[in-house]
Design a protein around this nucleic acid. Structure first.
Lengths: 327, 327
DNA sequence: CTTTAAAATGTTAACGTTGACATTTTCTCA
DNA sequence: TGAGAAAATGTCAACGTTAACATTTTAAAG
């Protein structure tokens, strides 16, 4: 591989000038610049970023750690993130942690030793011990951490969607269409917004919320199925992406058609939900990704962290899966 | 940040020994090893990979260039690739080329200057000029290139799915269920297998194949719609992932139910196709990813390229979207 | 023409590791 | 016990860049 010295020799300048030319230092005379570029082109010379990184102690590389892998949402986040970062000359290292503490630890080590500037991560720990261990380590490192769809740590910036608002918007929509007997399936941390919508019209959720967070897929499936059979809800509201699948699967098994037999409101839009004309609580993913990139870049210049939490507002996308019924 | 010298000082050894310890060099005495590790732990020392990469002229980093972004298939590939690579201590840099020649060029430059060992890429060029320009550059670089779902270049290993076999399997299945008037939508390069299935039972495809490769989504939509109305096929066979969406969208617009009004065979499985009970031509994605990783790793040791093309065989997943009709 | 400042380029060392080679320490066995 | 081999560690330079500083060249002004 050609180095700056090879180019320098042929161009009759010092390797420092070559370096300067590639960094577009205005001190390089235009004609020198042209000569250097021409020769570089011929030699197929590209500056060695590894050497540059070592010397300048900056890598222009961001690490992205993804926990729950198979969610199209992450493809979109990754895509937007990478595109925005690339525009500013940054690279993106990606890693999947498989929800495994050892793997999490290794990824962190690996990214740290790769000297990444910033690490964007989805919820990491699974228990308190792991959380503390990771926290201590993260605090100690001088890496810029950003929380994606989570805000477990106060010391790091967080970028989330307001899930309670999502629950509220969903519940309000269903209530406004006359539904009262609603089955909400999903994480427990979204109950507040859900309940609030009921309170606004002076009533209470018809039956207790199904806590499905920590159980196996099969258990959740059975729970949802049982709840539907028992309570005969007129609408089902999935309040996490995976719950869309789960709820839809139960409905298929029970041979219930949407919206004829039951109304369905999903969470986190995707292409199929769109094609199936299923109403959904959508999220401004691009805005969130853009915000993350801005934070990363501003850290570069300021090099000072004032942890902030940014929460983006979900919105209702009405399609044809929620039937209006008489109260 | 602590360096090997800091650790060395405290451990009373030379930095070289620290370096050896972290590389698990058997020459390091076990007790020395322990001492070094203990002190490193206390200092929060992690070897600086950037320096290591520079010195050893190896980065243990693989670049992945993705062309057609929003396809769950790629999430799975990426996921598997990353997991396998991580197991061997490799990192994955990801980039989306937006199907844009300039972006492609920049990504290549960026990955090259990052000194990646290997680059896995999906179809790159859009025209002959671009193909040649890229090819010259790639040949000239000493990077190990691997083609993912494409085999445009003979000089680089390629990993593909046998799409003609996919077309054949799909067509055969539809024919076996009595369908003769089939509308196949998708890329032109899969006709052979499709036609072969017809020939096997001594007949010809009912009407000309729809070439949809190079047009806009809206044009394709109209073309498919017109074809359905004109030819009234009893089955529709999507032969590329995006065609699933497109075909399904047309069917929704025409208010045709699957499989009552028309049979539907999709391409490239995903979670929703599964839930919708749509039969599909599936692909052994994990096997392909595994094969790529093996190729990458073996290049490390052998450092010699004998370009090979590996083609994986698709398979039919029967569900409930194809109706059996009387011939 | 000098003088002087500004522009352009050069020199040197350092970033933190590792490979090659040199040296010291420990162990083995006659 | 001491020679020789093996084990363990050390020294030094190099990877290809860039920051800091030094020097040369060019342009501007008197």
């Amino acid at each position: 591989m050609a180095t700056s010295k090879d180019v320098a020799r042929l161009a009759g300048v010092s390797h420092t000038t070559v370096s300067r030319a590639f960094r577009k230092d205005p001190k390089v005379k235009p004609e020198t610049y042209e000569r250097i570029m021409k020769i570089s082109e011929e030699l197929g010379y590209t500056p060695n970023q590894v050497a540059s990184n070592l010397r300048s102690q900056k890598t222009k590389t961001v690490g992205l750690i993804i926990s729950f892998g198979f969610n199209p949402f992450f493809l979109e986040i990754t895509h937007t993130l990478e595109t925005e970062l690339a525009r500013h000359g940054y690279r993106l290292l990606i890693a999947f942690d498989e929800d495994n503490p050892d793997r999490q630890w290794n990824i962190l080590q690996s990214l740290a030793s790769a000297q990444v500037n910033s690490i964007v991560f989805t919820p990491l720990y699974r228990d308190g011990n792991q959380k503390n261990r990771l926290y201590r380590w993260m605090k100690n490192s001088n890496i810029h951490f950003l929380q994606l769809i989570s805000n477990d740590y106060d010391d790091f910036a967080s970028f989330t969607f307001d899930d309670n608002l999502g629950a509220y918007l969903g519940a309000r929509h269903l209530l406004s269409q006359g539904h009262r007997n609603i089955l909400m399936v999903g994480g427990v941390n979204r109950v507040e917004g859900y309940t609030r919508a009921f309170e606004e019209i002076g009533c209470k959720p018809a039956f207790p919320y199904q806590n499905l967070s920590s159980e196996s897929k099969e258990q959740n499936f059975r729970k949802i199925k049982a709840a539907i059979l028992r309570q005969k809800p007129t609408a089902i509201f999935a309040i996490a992406y995976d719950m869309n699948y789960l709820a839809y699967e139960v409905l298929t098994e029970l041979n219930m058609k949407v919206p004829e037999d039951i109304s369905f409101l999903a969470f986190d839009d995707d292409r199929w939900l769109q094609l199936l004309r299923i109403s959904v609580i959508g999220h401004p993913i691009q805005a969130l990704a853009g915000s993350i990139v801005r934070e990363i870049l501003s850290y570069e210049t300021e090099n000072e962290i004032y942890p902030s939490s940014t929460s983006f507002k979900p919105f209702l996308i009405e399609r044809n899966s929620v039937l209006s019924i008489q109260v």
